[in-house]
Design a protein around this nucleic acid. Structure first.
Length: 202
DNA sequence: GAATCGATGATCT
DNA sequence: GATCATCGATTCA
């Protein structure tokens, strides 16, 4: 994907990310990848559930910058969440990656997750925003890195890339976002209902 | 299978 | 000092 893909309306980008491949290469050189099956859109001023909902702060500033960068933050003191910054500079927006179907690097993922490699299911690895970050090795050190090759990035930083969908979802389901108490009327959670790797109970 | 609850630290007021 | 875009263990069924 090019930067222009991300520099559009946040909800549009969120929907079109479903089915796409997310590939992560850590500082250790280990590569893991997965098919995106669940995302959420977060906007700016008119979205109180968003970190950008009440103006820029040191943490959310990146959401107000140019599209095509990773926004990573720590939640509940122990889990990381990975977002893709969207929209043009000056307009805040981001898409939270909530679930993947594991593709490459399953051994690395099971090791990072600390689960039994024989008994573990795909959903134990990458169903949920915190789980998938742990499986891909994503932490605060990944915050601010570029998502596309057309943006120059730091030398020895980890690498995140987004590729075309190997399989486009048959349908896209939309629901209220998970874990928020404000703006629950917005149906900004998008998912591939055919996937067995969705977050929450299943 | 569903409901409840505590862990734990960066960020913001 | 309060909040939090979550997870896993525990409990009850």
């Amino acid at each position: 994907m090019r930067q222009a893909f991300f520099a559009r309306n946040t909800v549009t980008v969120a929907r079109e990310l479903l089915g796409a491949v997310l590939e992560a290469t850590g500082p250790d050189g280990a590569m893991t990848s997965g098919r995106i099956v669940e995302v959420e859109a977060y906007e700016g001023e008119n979205d109180p559930a968003s970190h950008a909902g009440r103006g820029p702060t040191p943490r959310s500033e990146i959401m107000f910058g140019p599209a095509g960068f990773a926004y990573v933050y720590l939640i509940y003191g122990m889990h990381h969440c990975l977002n893709f910054v969207t929209e043009n500079e000056g307009t805040p927006g981001a898409v939270l990656i909530r679930a993947l179907e594991p593709l490459a690097g399953r051994e690395v993922m099971t090791a990072r997750r600390g689960v039994d490699s024989r008994r573990s299911q795909d959903r134990d690895l990458t169903a949920g925003p915190g789980r998938l970050c742990q499986a891909l090795g994503v932490d605060l050190g990944w915050n601010g890195i570029p998502l596309t090759g057309d943006i120059p990035g730091p030398e020895h930083a980890p690498i995140l890339r987004v590729g075309l969908p190997p399989k486009v979802p048959r349908v896209i389901e939309k629901t209220s976002r998970i874990g928020i108490s404000q703006a629950t009327e917005k149906l900004y959670r998008f998912l591939d209902p055919d996937s067995r790797c969705l977050s929450g109970t299943r």
